[in-house]
């Protein structure tokens, strides 16, 4: 008999250095509580985190890779959004 599938969860950890939660991997668990416990037991064994999010994998909507051009390339030409686009005289110093 085939083994029934246990729901899949994505795990996000906020590390000690204060950065945002970051995707670290996934796991299988029957419900949210067990998923959170398992995330703690699997992904924070070496003091990696101070906060955990678990999200059902099927709750995530992802962008379509075939639309990469339409989605992301238009941003590449907008160089005026970056500080290096602007000239500030050297004598003004760091700005």
């Amino acid at each position: 008999m085939a083994t029934p599938n246990m729901p899949l969860w994505e795990v996000f950890i906020r590390s000690r250095n204060g950065l945002a939660h970051k995707h670290v991997g996934s796991l299988h668990a029957a419900d949210t509580t067990l998923a959170l416990q398992a995330a703690r037991d699997i992904y924070t064994r070496r003091g990696e985190g101070l906060s955990i999010w678990v999200v059902p994998s099927n709750a995530i909507t992802a962008s379509d890779p075939s639309e990469k051009g339409m989605m992301f390339e238009p941003a590449e030409s907008k160089i005026y959004r970056h500080p290096t686009f602007y000239d500030v005289p050297d004598e003004v110093g760091h700005m």
Binding site: L8, E10, H23, S26, S57, N58, I60, A62
Partner: peptide, 8 residues
């Protein structure tokens, strides 16, 4: 993200 591949 890991989920989409499973869906397809």
């Amino acid at each position: 993200m890991y989920t989409q591949a499973l869906n397809t």
